[in-house]
Design a protein around this nucleic acid. Structure first.
Length: 211
DNA sequence: AGTGCGATTGACT
DNA sequence: GTCAATCGCACTA
């Protein structure tokens, strides 16, 4: 597609534009904030499911709550990939969690994707989740992975390449972004490293954290 | 080889 | 609001 085609209507066949690695800040907290409003695109045999990222958490370098804190292991090695790669793990034996690696290669840190606003492929997400209510589809890190059928087979993939799972850019810049402490951790509990869209009904967490 | 623990969710009072 | 399910993995021995 040529750059001369400036208009891009909703009816256009043109999908989301890839979010390039160069557009990602080389800093975990900055990346967590940057990813708010961006798109997550999942290509499945049945079709495409897309959501807008409305909640993230940063697990920064030297963070006792982060999985990379004690160094590289077989499970967390994807956190040490160059920024923009997927780190997927299973929490509590039942929920898959999606993170975006966030620093230079060899440095372990990441951004947890905690909630999406469903955009495209809602019926597919409903089918994957076994839930009808759109508001509950992708509200929470485990739920969004179930909705997009994300599991550890996607661990380590490059999210800055159009493939089975990738990040899309979006012009949606002017949302009011809130900050709070992170949810569900027991170490480094006081740091304000959670970011969310204040006006979004799709964010997770208690209302007390979403003001 | 055994143990303890979660970056959660869904069911229930 | 409370609470138990559930299992991969890191850690100890």
């Amino acid at each position: 597609m040529g750059g001369a085609d400036g208009l891009n209507t909703a009816a256009s066949m043109t999908g989301p534009r890839l979010l390039t690695r160069a557009a990602l800040p080389v800093d975990t907290a900055a990346l967590a904030r940057c990813l708010i409003g961006k798109l997550l695109v999942r290509a499945l045999p049945e079709g495409v499911a897309t959501g807008r990222i409305v909640e993230t958490e940063a697990y920064v370098v030297g963070d006792a709550a982060g999985h990379a804190y004690r160094g590289e292991t077989p499970r967390n090695r994807s956190l040490f990939l160059e920024r923009g790669h997927a780190y997927v793990y299973v929490a509590y034996g039942r929920s898959d969690m999606l993170n975006v690696s966030s620093e230079e290669a060899g440095v372990g840190a990441g951004v947890l994707i905690r909630a999406l606003e469903p955009l495209e492929g809602v019926p597919l997400m409903q089918s994957n989740r076994g839930v009808e209510r759109v508001r509950e589809l992708t509200r929470g890190p485990g739920r969004l992975c179930a909705a997009l059928r994300i599991d550890r087979r996607l661990d380590g993939i490059d999210l800055c390449r159009e493939g089975s799972l990738w990040l899309g850019d979006d012009a949606h810049a002017s949302d009011d972004i809130g900050e709070s402490v992170r949810i569900g951790i027991s170490k480094d509990v006081d740091r304000a490293l959670r970011f969310y869209v204040r006006s979004s009904p799709f964010v997770s967490g208690p209302t007390s954290l979403n003001r």
